[in-house]
């Protein structure tokens, strides 16, 4: 039982990270039906900037660790917002009425460029993310949970709540929802659609910055290639939940985290070790495919029209 509980904790932590990154994908998709494939690199930039700031502060000041991490996060956010904004302006804005796959290619190009720039700034080495928060371990029923895990789950829940508030209770949110329903009419109603789209990108990038700090602190490592796989997984999570749907991204992220943890933990025992943890991704993808075959627009996605 303690092993099972432990796997649930592992899955929820991983799922929280996926969920926060998935929110960035789904927000942009909701508004302009574009998959921002460079989003994973924005997470990477966030982790890298935080790595530098936290490392410097930890070495040169005597501020309390929690405050240092907070400052690091606050420094990463504007950097990521700038990158997000730049992506929108340079890679996507011109292509808003282009064929659907054109932005995919610019996104790939932008990913390569961002990775190479990060490599020039932060070197090729895997960097040890400063471990300054005392990683207290708590025991519940034989399972362990660390302070960082609690912080990650709590932060992601707070972020989701905050984002829901922004989207459903503020003028910006009303404008975003209007633009996503019909950009042209929203424009006629006095919404500056370009600004709203840029704001969406920036909001997603800010979330990515926080996710970058989470990942860095949790795994203790930052590397210039760290964004690709994370971005891909989070994208899968967003699709699983129903891309374009905020609650869907959260649900998809959590679910994917749990599926991966339980898959790695139990496939071996269930199949008498014919299949092992080496098939955990197969398991995750099969769940994904099964969900999509049964519900072709994700768990919470609306049924899309035939001309989507």
């Amino acid at each position: 039982m303690d092993t099972f509980l432990q796997q649930i904790i592992n899955g929820l932590t991983l799922g929280s990270v996926y969920a926060v990154v998935a929110l960035g994908y789904t927000m942009v998709y909701g508004i302009i039906q574009l998959i921002n494939f460079a989003h994973g690199e924005v997470v990477m930039i966030g982790a890298m900037v935080a790595f530098t700031v936290i490392g410097w502060l930890a070495a040169n000041t005597t501020l309390p660790p929690l405050l240092i991490v907070l400052i690091g996060t606050l420094a990463a956010i504007p950097a990521c917002v700038a990158v997000g904004y730049a992506l929108e302006i340079f890679a996507y804005r011109r292509l808003r009425n282009a064929p659907r796959l054109a932005p995919l290619i610019t996104a790939i190009g932008a990913s390569i460029v961002l990775q190479q720039l990060a490599m020039m700034i932060w070197s090729r080495n895997p960097l040890g993310f400063p471990q300054i928060i005392p990683n207290t371990v708590y025991h519940i029923e034989g399972a362990t949970i660390t302070l960082i895990q609690i912080a990650i789950i709590a932060t992601s829940v707070l972020l989701m709540a905050g984002l829901t508030f922004v989207v459903y209770r503020t003028r910006l949110g009303v404008a975003m929802r209007a633009a996503s329903q019909n950009a042209q009419i929203a424009g006629l109603m006095g919404v500056n659609v370009n600004q709203i789209i840029a704001a969406t990108f920036m909001l997603g990038a800010a979330l990515a910055a926080v996710a970058g700090v989470m990942v860095g602190t949790y795994y203790g490592i930052a590397h210039y290639t760290m964004g690709s796989l994370l971005g891909l997984k989070a994208f899968c999570a967003a699709v699983l939940g129903g891309i374009g749907n905020l609650a869907g991204a959260m649900l998809g992220g959590m679910l994917l985290g749990l599926v991966e943890a339980l898959g790695a933990g139990y496939i071996g025992d269930l199949t008498n070790n014919v299949f092992g943890s080496n098939y955990q991704d197969v398991f995750a993808f099969l769940v994904l495919i099964a969900v999509l075959v049964l519900r072709p627009s994700g768990l919470l996605g609306e049924r899309i029209g035939e001309r989507a």
């Binding site: 340079f90 890679a91 011109r94 292509l95 054109a102 932005p103 290619i105 610019t106 790939i108 190009g109 932008a110 990913s111 390569i112 460029v113 190479q116 720039l117």
Partner: peptide, 12 residues
Amino acid sequence: LLFGLALMLMML
């Protein structure tokens, strides 16, 4: 870097 930029520019 140039390859990434080329991808972007050609598509833009």
